[in-house]
Structures are given as C-alpha cells and as structure tokens.
Simulated assay, not measured.
Amino acid sequence: MTHVVLQAKDISLGYPRAEGWQQVLARFDLQLAPGEVVSILGPSGVGKSSLLRVLAGLQQPQGGHVMLHGQPLQGPHPRLAVAFQDPSLLPWLSLEKNVAFGLDFARQPTLAADERRARVDHAIAAVGLDHARNQYPAQLSGGMAQRTALARCLARQPEVLLLDEPFGALDEVTRADMQQLLLQLIATHNTAAVLITHDIDEALLLSDRVLLLGDHPAHTLGQWLVDLPQPRTQQVEALGALRIEILKTLRRGSRTVEPQPTPLPSEAVHVHG
C-alpha cells in the first residue's frame, strides 16, 4: 500500500449569513503520497483557498479531520509549507533574510547557526538566486519574488507544499519557468504538493492527479489520473482529451441548483471563501 503523508477525510466548511448557514464545502476527501502533485480546480469562490488553509492547519473545518502521517493536524506544522499568489516578502529584509525568516515561523524547530545557514544557502541556490541574495524585494522582478517565496518554503524542508495559485500573477514566460522549477524541486526532494489553481492547462502540465470541485456546496465532481511522463508540453493530444473531459464535467456540475441556507449551527465559525 502506498504511504500517505497527508489525508483529509469528510472535510466540511461553511460560514454564517444573515439568512442562515451557507455550506461551502461538503465531505471532501484527499490522500496525498510523498512526491505526488495533486491539483484542485474549481470555479472562483468555491472555497479552494479555505480548503488549503484547512489542509495547512490554519483553519479548523466544521466537520471532518486532517491527518499528517496518521496523526491529527491541530494547527500549523513545520512539515507543511504554504505559498500564496502574493509572495508576501518583508520589504526591509534582503532576499537572504526573507528566506531565513521562514525558519522563525511558529512551531519551527530551533536550529544551530551552521544548520540554519546551510538550509538558507541550499534553498537560495535551488531557485537560482545566489546572485541576488543581498537584494531587497523592491529590486526583484515578479518571478524572482516568487522564487524567493518558494525558497522560504524549501528552507523549512517541508514534506508537503501547499500552493495557492502561486504563479497566477506572473507573465506566461515567467510562469512556465516557475512551473518547471517547481517540478524539479519536487522531484529532487520527493516533496508532496497540493496546487490550487483555476488553470486547467497548468493542472494538467504539473499534476499526477487533478480534482475538480463543483459548488452549491462544493464537492468533488471528478478526479483524473494524469499518467504521462514529464515534460508534458509536447503531449498536446493526450492532454487535450483530458482537458475536454474536465471542461464537460465542470459545465455539467455548474448546472447544480443552489440549495436554500440552513439554520445557523449553535457554534458557527466564520470562514472566508
């Protein structure tokens, strides 16, 4: 049996509205193996970012649970690293110090000075930014800023990368470069990854599996295994067939009628979509 590093079981999310409780996500399941890349697709506002926060231990679901190596995830964990569309670099710190800053996050283990330096140096080299380590965020291009954010994650040596549309704001050329860099880093470190994206092509190019969420409330409409070797940029016909199938499933799912809100539960927790 394949080892599971991260598992989500029966995850349900919702938020309170004036007229009642609006469920966002219903009974979501996920099993993630080491080195596996899973993309989660779905329409805007379906709750993909909220789901990622649950998988990261940053937000508790209303139902279900998340397990890391078979143990309940109670909050942020040093073996989980999150990257967002906004690199969120601190403008008063150099690139090098922004990468090192990730090692000061809550629950990170205390490192000896030489190990800390080695981790930072390795992460910066891995994303090809040795030449810019003393530059500040204002001096970096969008692609360099995203590489820095990725290096900040890598310095923590995570087993799971959770990525919330990290390349969405980049131009097409830079985005393609970052996608290939991500694949190289995952292959090198055998890191598992969950990628939130609205881009079907990106999901097909990067993922071992693609999950499609439908809304009202969100649930898994379909799941596809992308059993094609990397790189996939020349495999247009095979990817095109999968793309059409995903689009058809998405269109069928979008015809679902929105249910009426239910009464607010006694302990409603507000979450953002």
Rank of each mutant, 00 (worst) to 15 (best):
G102I: 06
E258R: 14
P261G: 12
V226G: 05
L89E: 08
Q179S: 09
A203K: 03
L73E: 08
E258T: 14
L30F: 02
P78A: 05
F105D: 01
S88K: 15
L242N: 02
F28C: 00
D10E: 14
G102K: 05
P263L: 13
Q22P: 07
S49M: 02
R116C: 07
E165D: 02
D171S: 12
G35P: 01
S49R: 10
H3M: 14
S49C: 07
L250H: 11
D215C: 10
A26F: 12
G14N: 00
L95H: 06
V99L: 05
A56S: 11
V46W: 04
V37E: 03
S49D: 06
F167G: 04
V38Q: 05
I124W: 09
D164T: 02
P91L: 05
Q23Y: 10
H219M: 10
V66T: 04
Q184Y: 03
Q62W: 08
A187H: 13
D171F: 13
T110M: 11
P87W: 08
K48M: 11
R232K: 12
T256A: 15
L205T: 03
S207A: 09
T256R: 14
R117C: 11
R243T: 03
P158Q: 00
Q180S: 14
W92L: 06
L6K: 05
P72M: 03
S254V: 07
T188Y: 11
L212G: 09
L163K: 02
P229Q: 08
P76D: 02
A8D: 07
G143D: 04
A218Y: 06
V226E: 00
Q74S: 15
L163C: 01
K9W: 08
Q184L: 09
P76N: 06
G142Q: 12
R53N: 15
A123E: 12
D29K: 07
L150Q: 01
D199W: 05
V99Q: 03
G240T: 05
V210D: 00
E115H: 14
A123Q: 14
H131T: 13
I200Q: 00
G273L: 14
A193G: 10
E245M: 05
K248E: 15
S44G: 13
G75T: 01
P259L: 03
K48D: 12
T2F: 05
L181P: 06
H216Y: 11
A100D: 13
P76Y: 00
H69D: 15
L206P: 09
Q71K: 15
D114F: 10
D86Y: 04
L239C: 08
L51S: 05
G142V: 08
G214Y: 10
P137G: 11
I40D: 00
L32D: 04
Q180Y: 11
D86S: 14
P261H: 07
L162K: 01
L30V: 02
R147V: 04
G214C: 04
A203Q: 03
W224R: 13
A118D: 15
H69G: 13
S39P: 03
H77C: 06
L183C: 12
A218L: 00
G143R: 09
Q31C: 08
L51G: 03
G64Y: 05
E202N: 01
A149D: 11
Q62P: 07
R147M: 02
G240K: 07
R175M: 07
P87F: 09
A26H: 14
A132N: 10
P91V: 00
Q108A: 06
V120I: 11
K97E: 15
Q179E: 14
A33Y: 00
V160L: 07
I186K: 06
W92V: 10
